[in-house]
Nucleic acid binder design. Structure first.
Lengths: 239, 239, 239, 239
DNA sequence: TATGAATGAGATTTCATTCAT
DNA sequence: CATGAATGAAATCTCATTCAT
């Protein structure tokens, strides 16, 4: 029993190791230049071993994406639920995004990979990939809920279908990430990205808020995001 | 006499043929899966012939991009200048985009290729690629002008640097295109895309407009765009 | 235990196999017409496999060259040191060359490839290739030493800089090899080449010897070289 | 009549033009990087036109070689005949070579191309190329004559077959040229080459001269070679 | 005669994936 | 379970040569 348990635990750890190393590589050098060779090297495993844990390169990417999406939903959902209005919920959502980005940059991976694997998402869903979207769809749901709530309580604009609008919003929100994720890390500037995210999210807030909303809810303060330096692996280095 | 003229014309036509076939392929299957082999096959030429007309694959892509960007600026600029306010100018800009998309879908290619060639643009500019941006930068300028004007006449929000905001706006605007351009699917649903564009552009308009703006300028009517079906090649098929 | 040893040995053997097949091909058909395709075919491997063992085609060539040069120096150096005069040392040097050629023909490859990789050597050294010359420079040094010694003990002509003269001598000596190495002919006539080498080396000996030298040291006897027939691969076939 | 004459003259001129431009290119960038494209461009003709005047690229190279060889023989033969001994004749031969090199560098082309076209010459004659050697063989003959004469009058070493030795001598003499011809001109240094030629030819003289020869005939003075600067085309620029 | 245009054949290199041990 | 080794398929680009006009 104990033996099997250990084996199973080791198996999970290996999987994690591979996933993490792959994630680091994506962050460092971009999705397009990720190779199985690189992942194997980083994980100090052989290429063949990767195939014991994942069916294909794509499977690895999907898993990374899934993990990041799940983490985001887990992080944002409770915070969003505490909000007292739809607009505030949306505000909280973006703030969560920014916080999470400040902590791990995983959200970059999230979008970058998504666009690599199924570029049409969230607009068009490639049916061959159905089943992939478990976690991504949770994000769509999360945002759709927020929009629905705001439309109901009058803090967000009305007249649009929440589900579809949510997809649009995700697309816009991720556009910056997408742009950034494709650039290898050396050229990236974390503070530039944060500033850009704020700009984008504020446009979204204003674009979705009802007339005469509380101006405080239309702005995102950069201070809410920890000003950390990240090492090559995306791990945070306390100053 | 006429003979040289004909030859020159044929040469231009062949160039065009290649460019168009390549464009079709990008629209059909996405930029990343575009190969010289495919282009050659589509144009019914040999691979070697392609190199008679273009120095490299990248040169083909840049040419397509350049052509599309130039066409857009040429189309939009005069319309934008006729607008009586910054907000109206912005409205006109998006309407132009939608109209042009309805006609040729070239704007899709525009963005898709840009992201392939220099993924960080417009946020981060890779200096090695300077000279590629002639036409792209004209777009940035066009939008920056519009924003500047709106900030001056009070129809758009103030307090942001027009040039930087312009880049953000382009990024957002192109994200949807990009999302679509990378879909390797023979028959894209043009009307879906148009609807999506409207949604996105309206969020942008509201997000950038000053308080209490004319609601008519915050909406984009789909009717202004010809409801055509496009075949795989992006050619319009009258119903 | 023994298993890793075997694997490591097999790896070395494969490397050797590739190197040898490549060498055979150079001998058979000349350097310029050597392709990775050919090497792969000859070694009964796929092209991709070659890249597991060598970084590039050039790397293969350099390795062959290096091996041959090292082997020559290792073979000739102790013999040359035993000589009792500079002239005798030079005589011994050429005799070594002829003996080694009789055994493996590797010296042919040596020169042919060198000329392919850095054609100006030894007269002009392309600085971009520094690091390639480790072994080649050892040959220059070996000959320069011999010349220096002969000038000192009065058995060779004086008044020339040993280092420069050594380069000239190498150039001349290798010209014959080079001439032969580039012949794409399955069955070269080994005895023709040996005769030619003798002729050339004797001219060199006389051209460099001081007046009134021992005539015995000015002639190279062909008998010192085993009269073997070589098959296409340069392997010796005892008659 | 006059018309046909003109046409024939023009044809000859075109041929010359092509040959000269090709020669310039070989001198500038080396034999191996010579392409039909380049020749056509330099001659301001189309590639197809080249094929009206020459059957193949090889034919062009052979013609260049032939021209250079013929010029050399024409230049050297009368001078050599004036010599009063075999050794003096050999001395004159090398002096002629150096002079001609000083004037046109054509001799570089001569050897460089030869090695490209039939690398085995003069040692081994590829029978498929028979008929190519008209002029090259004249060179062999010229040198064989000189050697024969020197053996007869006792000024050169005896006991070797003049014809075979002539081939060896040509090979040695051209070795430097060969080495140099493969390096693109920018890296070439004319004075370096001249010095190197002198060194090589003096070794040859000493190597072939009989014992106790006139020391004056064993040295070549550099001063006999005009110290000219050559432009890219190899034409001489009087200082 | 001259040529613009076209091309077949081939070269090097990369990478996800499989298989024998 | 782990892996070293192998590979097929593909991608970009080059060049001597031919052909229709």
């Amino acid at each position: 029993m104990g033996i099997e348990e250990r084996k199973s635990r080791e198996r999970v750890e290996r999987r994690s190791l591979i996933l993490n190393k792959a994630k680091e590589l994506v962050l460092e050098r971009g999705v397009t230049s990720l190779t199985m060779q690189d992942i194997a090297q980083a994980a100090e495993l052989s290429k063949a071993t990767l195939y014991l844990y994942f069916q294909s390169k794509e499977a690895i990417l999907i898993d990374i994406m899934d993990e990041a999406a799940t983490a985001f939903v887990k992080f944002a959902q409770p915070r969003v639920l505490e909000a007292t209005s739809g607009l505030e919920a949306l505000h909280t959502l973006w703030a969560s995004y920014l916080t999470l980005f400040g902590e791990s940059q995983d959200v970059i991976v999230l979008t970058g990979i998504k666009n690599y694997i199924d570029p049409g998402f969230p607009l068009i869903v490639d049916e061959r990939n159905s089943g992939i979207y478990d976690s991504s769809m949770k994000m769509v749901g999360l945002i759709a809920d927020v929009l629905h709530r705001g439309m109901a309580d009058g803090t967000l604009i009305k007249g649009l279908e929440p589900e579809k609008l949510a997809r649009t919003v995700i697309m816009i929100a991720t556009s910056i990430i997408d742009t950034v994720a494709k650039v290898p890390r050396p050229s990236r500037d974390a503070s530039l990205i944060r500033t850009e995210m704020c700009r984008t999210f504020e446009i979204l807030l204003r674009g979705l808020a009802a007339q005469n909303s509380d101006p405080g809810l239309l702005a995102l303060s950069l201070e809410s995001i920890p000003d950390i330096r990240l090492d090559a692996a995306g791990h945070r280095n306390k100053p």
